[in-house]
Design a binder for these strands. Sequence first.
DNA 1: AATGAATGAGAATTCATTCAT
DNA 2: AATGAATGAATTCTCATTCAT
Lengths: 216, 216, 216, 216
Amino acid sequence: MRETGCIHNNRPGVMSTQPRQRRHRDESQRHLVDATISAIYKHGFHEATAQRIAEEAGLSAGNIHYHFGSKEELFAAAMRQLMSDISDTLVYELGKADTPLARAHAIIHANLSEPLYTHRNCFVWLQFWSETARSEELARLERINAQRFHRNLLDALSKLLDRPDAEKIVQELVAMVDGLWIRKAQHNEAVTPEAARAIVFAYLERRLGPAAGQGS
Amino acid sequence: MRETGCIHNNRPGVMSTQPRQRRHRDESQRHLVDATISAIYKHGFHEATAQRIAEEAGLSAGNIHYHFGSKEELFAAAMRQLMSDISDTLVYELGKADTPLARAHAIIHANLSEPLYTHRNCFVWLQFWSETARSEELARLERINAQRFHRNLLDALSKLLDRPDAEKIVQELVAMVDGLWIRKAQHNEAVTPEAARAIVFAYLERRLGPAAGQGS
Amino acid sequence: MRETGCIHNNRPGVMSTQPRQRRHRDESQRHLVDATISAIYKHGFHEATAQRIAEEAGLSAGNIHYHFGSKEELFAAAMRQLMSDISDTLVYELGKADTPLARAHAIIHANLSEPLYTHRNCFVWLQFWSETARSEELARLERINAQRFHRNLLDALSKLLDRPDAEKIVQELVAMVDGLWIRKAQHNEAVTPEAARAIVFAYLERRLGPAAGQGS
Amino acid sequence: MRETGCIHNNRPGVMSTQPRQRRHRDESQRHLVDATISAIYKHGFHEATAQRIAEEAGLSAGNIHYHFGSKEELFAAAMRQLMSDISDTLVYELGKADTPLARAHAIIHANLSEPLYTHRNCFVWLQFWSETARSEELARLERINAQRFHRNLLDALSKLLDRPDAEKIVQELVAMVDGLWIRKAQHNEAVTPEAARAIVFAYLERRLGPAAGQGS
DNA sequence: AATGAATGAGAATTCATTCAT
DNA sequence: AATGAATGAATTCTCATTCAT
């Protein structure tokens, strides 16, 4: 069926001497992915048409299919980009944390501070959330992301509490953070990153207080 | 332009003496609204086409415009329907509660029990959430619903705590409930109504514990 | 996926009192089928775009998908139409023939006289021939048509000759008729119906001569 | 406009002293022509896209325009290639024939034996047949080929019969051979080269028998 | 009140072609 | 000589909407 020119972006690890065209290709692909996120933010998922995305990227619509094979693939690439951003931020924040509690704090902090906890990011993520019903690939990515968040928190908290308690707290925290992302997506001005963090941290302290107190 | 057909459903208070056609009309409209929710649940918001909705309702596509003027209006009617369901359930649950704490419990219980806390309901609601960006009317309805939830909880809790504390707890609760709705929408089997309520009630007790304990 | 309005033309046998809309539908469908054949004749198979076909039919392009679900289905319907024309002509000609030889003559005559043996018909048929490679459905129809032609001729000739001889003659006749259709499709003026029939009849007489002579 | 690259393949008579690049060029062109035929055989005329042809040739799509100026020109080159194959085979077979009858046999034999009478060849040729409607150049080539076949046969047979008879027989033979090519293209397994030749030779003998007998 | 044939704007996608490298 | 990124026109198809019946 489809046999377009370039589809896979099999970029090698380091290639300083890569030819000019290769650089062009990677740049265009990155532009398209960024433009996709912008277009979703500006217009919502379904108004983010190929035309608009391409325009936003300063390219013509044909490139979407040249580089990604289909619009669907481009959306998946955009979601992966967001996940990669989340991951980078998380790794950075975790790098500064050296105790289990600090790690739990870091994870929550990363998810409720800029650059992740912005209207743009929460809004676009909500759009993807609602599209996981249609796209198995998007659903798969969402699951990966959710599991990573869950596992990271659990790793940290299970050093402070016994497993069932930790599990329970994690569920509460995840629910709160998800809820705060939705709220940000919907009513940006209603909740600042500081307020969001204050809510969750206050909760966490109260929640850990007695339990953690016993642990110390 | 032309303004044939019925568009506003100005149903009169008294229903018994309405003519035959009026009954037909109301019935078709209800069918269409129900069919809209079903179609969104089956196919997602954007795959819920006029054709499919009409088919689900056992009518033809033309009726949507005859009865609602536009697909957009029908979606708004469907969202109002969901809100009305929520309201009915809430009123019923609140009717059984006679203390502030019981009222807070009732509100949360209503939002995290059947018939509201079902996959269908949470899923459809998530779809609407993501569409508020496109439609000012849907956004308005969402705001009304959010405010009602917030106000109800605040009314109850402000009888138990001072205002700033109550405000804070309400925000935490709202975030948790929203997060649990999303989770239900996304991974139905991952959270039962009982588990969801357990999470929030445990949190609420712990949160109120010292404060409420002092109050009692 | 697809769930367009009307797709099957389940017209009942006789329905004199059919509603106006039903008549409209059938008429539009017939127009579209005719327009398809015209467009193929005018522009060739692949230049017969939905746009052009609809224009030829005096309708808008959306109707193709409303009535037939896809362009591919419309093409199949057009091929069935051609086959039905062939069948009608054949039945009519066979109705006048009462001996096996007359039946054989009738079959060939039908295939090499107007209205079947026209530039338009041969040309369009050649277009379909070359498309059977792409479309399993068109291939199926072509097979049905080829088999019908083969069987009819064989039925007639096997009354005059023993089976192997009849089989052989039929193959020769089929090859000649197909070849004459191609020639007509390609160089209309190079061969008149009369000339085509003369070629095949002369061949048939010479071929049957001795064998049939023995039979008489 | 611009007229870069090589478009005409004005290959000189002497080849031995051509520079390296010239050899590269000729090789690429031959690859492309072969790839075109392969692609048509694999996918049909209209699915034989520039992309696919280039891929089949182990080159990139740009080369088609560099070497041939347009896809249309490449198709014409491919058709010329097929005609050249036919011509080569015919010349070879005619070289072994020394009587008029032998020459007639040789012509038919060449057209109904490998390597010409293969599924691939007949199929691709049918594809070109159906495209002559669109392309004046392809039509011109087809005419040349048809006339050559006709003339060759007529030259041979007019030595055995008077002109009108010869003319008639040639038309019958051409029709049969064309018909047998179509049959091969459509239902490869339905007719072997031997069977095809048997049909036409049996016909020719019977046809020439009395006439040739009278003539001798 | 309801139907369903028809429309037309806009969606994704395909593909020959161009051209800088 | 060859590449492959980019283009833009054309194509099929979708769908809310209109409107005669």
